[in-house]
């Protein structure tokens, strides 16, 4: 049987990785602010359905993506209010959010199954798209692939160079110190949570509008959990999230390609390898830094300003 063309494989990986890339990037910002939101799956699937409904009713994929981001942000604020103002436990609330989101999306989606989303066109970038071979592979995707890439750069620059990014990181490293300096810890965290929700929503909508593209119950099928793993794997760094997303997405696509090409692959071993790799990365990081993990110090801790 034929061998696998690496360029074609790369193009497939770029598409397959976009949903987890978006969701993981959002969750990374949330976690950098010291909040652990395990509800990524619930926010993704909410984005998938509201994005689909908006795009289907209006005929505009763009409107679909915008709505998905808003929907994801809105449902994430449920988590935000509960954990930040009512000081509920983040782990439990995140899990409850996933349950709620899965139910809600399936309720909204009852009359939308089996329908087709309006087509999201592939971009044709002048010059770049016309490059031989590379142009077809790298520069003829739909706009969201590039939006996701731009967001990686944007988030990286925001965290590294802007004052707001510095404040966000400070809140994640020590909320008491940030509070003492006069920063509004809860507001910062709420913004981060909403941003994370918006990106998870976009990731979900990418599934229902581009990759599949139609609505089916439970269609995220665990992508949100993979995004969570990815953030850890990337040790909370934007470009590593990108690399990790392409690696995670790459393993699943490669696995299918190897099967299609007729190679003998232990499929179950490959499908559990991303998670084992994540654990390994975690151990290496924490061993090397003698316990000072790359994780934001306040991850998952409740903040309450004592007067």
């Amino acid at each position: 049987m034929g061998s696998i063309d690496p360029l074609v494989l790369l193009a497939a990986i770029m598409m397959a990785s976009t949903p987890i890339l978006l969701a993981a990037l959002g969750e990374m910002v949330v976690e950098r602010a010291g909040v652990l939101n395990l509800g990524v799956e619930g926010m993704m699937i909410t984005g998938a359905i509201v994005g689909f409904v908006a795009a289907y009713e209006s005929g505009s994929p763009t409107l679909g993506f915008v709505t998905a981001a808003l929907g994801g942000a809105l449902i994430s604020l449920l988590f935000g209010v509960l954990t930040q103002f009512l000081m509920s436990n983040q782990v439990a609330t995140g899990l409850a959010l996933t349950l709620f989101g899965l139910g809600l999306s399936s309720l909204i989606g009852q009359s939308y199954s089996g329908l087709r989303a309006p087509l999201t066109p592939d971009l044709h970038i002048p010059v770049l798209s016309d490059l031989p071979v590379v142009g077809r592979v790298l520069f003829q995707h739909d706009a969201m692939v590039y939006v996701a890439l731009a967001l990686v750069v944007g988030v990286w620059a925001f965290l590294k160079f802007t004052r707001a990014g510095l404040i966000l990181r400070a809140v994640g490293e020590s909320h008491d110190a940030a509070h003492a300096l006069g920063y509004r810890v809860k507001l910062v965290r709420l913004c981060a949570i909403a941003f994370g929700g918006a990106l998870a929503g976009l990731g979900g909508a990418y599934l229902s509008l581009v990759r599949v593209p139609s609505w089916t119950d439970g269609m995220t099928a665990g992508a949100g959990w993979i995004a969570l793993a990815l953030v850890v794997f990337a040790s909370w760094k934007a470009f590593r999230v990108l690399a990790g997303a392409y690696l995670f997405g790459g393993i699943s696509v490669l696995q299918l390609n190897l099967q299609a090409a007729g190679s003998k692959v232990p499929a179950d071993l490959l499908s559990m390898s991303p998670f084992l790799a994540t654990i390994l990365v975690l151990v290496i990081i924490s061993a090397r830094k003698k316990g000072a993990t790359a994780a934001p110090a306040m991850l998952g801790r409740v903040f309450h300003a004592s007067q």
């Binding site: 049987m1 034929g2 990759r211 995220t220 299918l256 390609n257």
Partner: peptide, 16 residues
């Protein structure tokens, strides 16, 4: 039943 995975599988077959 996993639409995303099915789409990827079809794409992988077509790519091959």
């Amino acid at each position: 039943f996993d639409p995303a995975k099915e789409a990827d599988a079809a794409q992988a077959l077509i790519d091959n």
